[in-house]
């Protein structure tokens, strides 16, 4: 099987965000992360494209993403002050969506800057 090689890949594990990583990947996992540090290697080599987890859980039971999205929207909309927290390990594109969502929810948005 041929390996997919990605040059100048960006590591988002820590705030240094190195962008000179060379990734060698098969269909399911990254086999090698050249130039990555020990943390970066652990980051790249331990996130795979395998289906290791259920796509969604509702109250601990497996559910579809559709069901989970609907239920999440219901819970968040019903709240008086919902919190949107984290933000730091997701893409900027997801962050922009999240700020817009927090605004629509009338809630609070906060990142790891506060812890």
């Amino acid at each position: 099987m041929s390996l997919n090689i990605v040059n100048n890949a960006t590591c988002t594990f820590c705030g240094c965000v190195c962008d000179d990583i060379e990734l060698h990947a098969d269909e399911e996992r990254i086999i090698e992360a050249k130039k990555a540090c020990v943390l970066g290697k652990a980051w790249f080599l331990n996130h795979t494209a395998e289906r290791l987890y259920p796509e969604a859980l509702i109250d601990g039971k497996e559910a579809t993403v559709d069901e989970a999205v609907e239920f999440a929207a219901e819970l968040l909309d019903a709240a008086t002050t919902p919190l949107v927290y984290g933000m730091s390990n997701i893409t900027c594109e997801a962050q922009r969506e999240a700020v817009g969502l927090a605004e629509r929810l009338g809630g609070v948005v906060d990142s790891h800057t506060s812890l």
Binding site: T81, P82, L83, Y85, G86, M87, A98
Partner: peptide
């Protein structure tokens, strides 16, 4: 002070 939470890419 909050009554629901959406956690994105974090493990509080």
């Amino acid at each position: 002070d909050v009554d629901a939470a959406l956690i994105l890419g974090a493990d509080p």
